[in-house]
Design a protein around this nucleic acid. Structure first.
Length: 269
DNA sequence: TACCAGGTAGTGA
DNA sequence: TCACTACATGGT
């Protein structure tokens, strides 16, 4: 068990922020997470966060995943004092972090996210993992499913996807998986591209448009200047930033501000 | 019943 | 480039 005092960290906010669909609530401020094939249980009391894993695994996997080396206080201090909307949003989501998720998982999850709600996205991802993910065991010997590999999904048929209830998104996922396996889109190369090139390359994937590509850049590649505009953020921009969001002010980390706004809309609507 | 949910792709002008 | 529309599914 690893214990750390962490500032600007709220497990519940992170779990509910809609950037990852593999958090499960186990109890009050206690969650399990499956990411990159690894399972962990995390709980929080005040600033004290407990990670149920070895020191080595914490350092090699979870410190990076939860972005613990970043100073979110710096991002929050950058918010303009007169920007009352963003001040409220930051106050509401003061413990948010931009996770560093596995690329293929994030691509599939955000293809599923289109025209969908978080509850149903979570169910679809759960179904997908149950059906096609490798069976693994956690430290207690309990079974969990890893996220299906790109090879496994590329080998599926549309009929096999039917029980997952993906709707029209099934075709996108199947095509995208085959584009990656065939080498048409090189995800290893995408990992090393800058934000603009990564976004362009990701948009070559079936079912990945501008918004989904921005989400993948933000939540998997940690290009935190990515700024996905979905229906909620569109409404925020229309209501509070009619002249456009001040991207220049937040150059280099506008995506963090996007996440505060997105979470704020989530918990207040 | 109608509308909505972290949109995308195809079509025609 | 822009406007418009079909695309699955489930919840409210």
């Amino acid at each position: 068990m690893i214990e750390r005092e962490i500032a600007d960290f709220d497990l519940e906010q992170i779990a509910r922020s809609g950037q990852c669909f593999r958090f499960r609530e186990l109890g009050e401020k206690r969650y399990s997470v499956v990411a990159g094939g690894k399972y962990i249980e995390v709980c929080q009391e005040g600033r004290l966060v407990r990670f149920d894993c070895s020191e080595e695994t914490f350092e090699s996997v979870w410190r990076g995943y939860f972005d613990l080396d970043a100073d979110y206080g710096r991002y929050k201090r950058a918010v303009a004092k007169r920007d009352q909307y963003l001040q409220r949003a930051v106050a509401a989501g003061c413990g948010l972090r931009i996770l560093r998720q596995e690329l293929w998982e994030t691509i599939v999850c955000f293809i599923i996210s289109q025209q969908n709600n978080i509850g149903r996205i979570t169910k679809c991802v759960e179904n997908l993992c149950s059906l096609f993910g490798e069976i693994c065991y956690n430290r207690s010997g309990q079974v969990y499913n890893a996220f299906p590999t790109v090879e496994r999904l590329a080998a599926c048929t549309l009929e096999e996807f039917a029980p997952i209830r993906l709707g029209y998104r099934a075709r996108y996922i199947l095509s995208a998986a085959r584009q990656v396996v065939s080498g048409e889109v090189d995800l290893e190369a995408v990992r090393h591209m800058d934000y603009a090139h990564a976004r362009t390359e990701l948009m070559r994937l079936s079912g990945v448009g501008r918004k989904v590509a921005e989400c993948i850049c933000l939540f998997a590649l940690h290009h935190i200047d990515a700024f996905p505009i979905d229906t909620h953020i569109r409404q925020v921009l229309d209501a509070h930033y009619p002249k456009g969001f001040p991207l220049k002010r937040y150059r280099g980390f506008a995506g963090v501000m996007q996440q505060y706004a997105f979470y704020y809309e989530l918990v207040t609507n």
